[in-house]
Design a binder for these strands. Structure first.
Lengths: 144, 144
DNA sequence: ACACTATTTATAAACATTACAATGTAAGAA
DNA sequence: TTCTTACATTGTAATGTTTATAAATAGTGT
């Protein structure tokens, strides 16, 4: 399934006229395979073995490119660095306040809220963002 | 009404055992009166007149204190600096993609999503965050 | 093969935020 | 009041993430 996602992403790049370089391929692959919503620096470090000469700038540049063609979303929380998430299917995130773990979870989509917001504020709505915060099962145990 | 909010906030500080210094009073006052969800730097600049010697560190320190006692929420978007919002009543934000304007808007609260997330993920949910993105009425006019 | 453009690299710069040490200020006890 | 102690503020240095820039490299179309 990760294969298919990667394939789909590459198709999306092709049809957007974006070149598929080895670095881009590797960054995308890492984003898809790692379930961990990594930071730019984590991606950089994890590809050091394969690409000893790769620059951090390349990671940032390409994450921006991926964002622009809608392959990737940037997640900004309170902490210092952004995390990046491959948008394959629509999903939300639930985040552990204690250990920082991020888990995907599905929910129908909040169309109703968007509609109401449009009516009340006069905005033309394009998108929304939602996250849920709490304590993950592991951290609940450790607290007891 | 801003008076009452400020008063309530000061009471909250008292009962948390947090000292009410002139700087803290001014920062809170600015947060409550400005409807603009300011950045730390904006707060700092706006109080330069009253407190020529105030340090940026003071602004950051106190925003952290306010966050800890639950008076203030930190809003992190894609851009470089956090914005700060006085939590008086529960509300969500709708944000203009073009000009960055942030407008408050009320909605019943997404208890149902929280409950479902709890069941699906096993997390113990404490909080959630939602923002809506779009184009504000002004920017819609300026586009066409 | 050639010219042209996109991409990568390396490094410097910008910027927000935090850490730290020194100074100042308020509250309570003797 | 004065002493003591804990908390706040200030100024500055340090940290860390992200962006800008210029040079080197690779790819594409003619």
């Amino acid at each position: 399934m990760a294969e298919e996602k990667l394939h789909g992403a590459i198709e999306a790049m092709k049809s957007s006229g974006v070149r598929i370089t080895p670095q881009r391929h590797a960054i995308l692959e890492h984003l898809i395979q790692s379930m961990a919503h990594p930071t730019a620096d984590e991606i950089y470090k994890s590809l050091e073995g394969k690409f000893p000469n790769m620059s951090v700038a390349t990671v940032y540049n390409n994450l921006r490119v991926f964002k622009e063609i809608g392959l990737v979303k940037e997640l900004t929380y309170g902490d210092s660095s952004s995390r990046f998430d491959c948008v394959t299917t629509d999903h939300y995130h639930i985040i552990c306040d204690d250990c920082g773990k991020i888990v995907d979870f599905h929910y129908p989509g909040l169309d109703e809220v968007e509609t109401l917001a449009e009516q009340v504020t006069g905005f033309q709505v394009g998108d929304h963002r939602m996250e849920i915060y709490g304590s993950c099962p592991d951290c609940q145990k450790n607290k007891h």
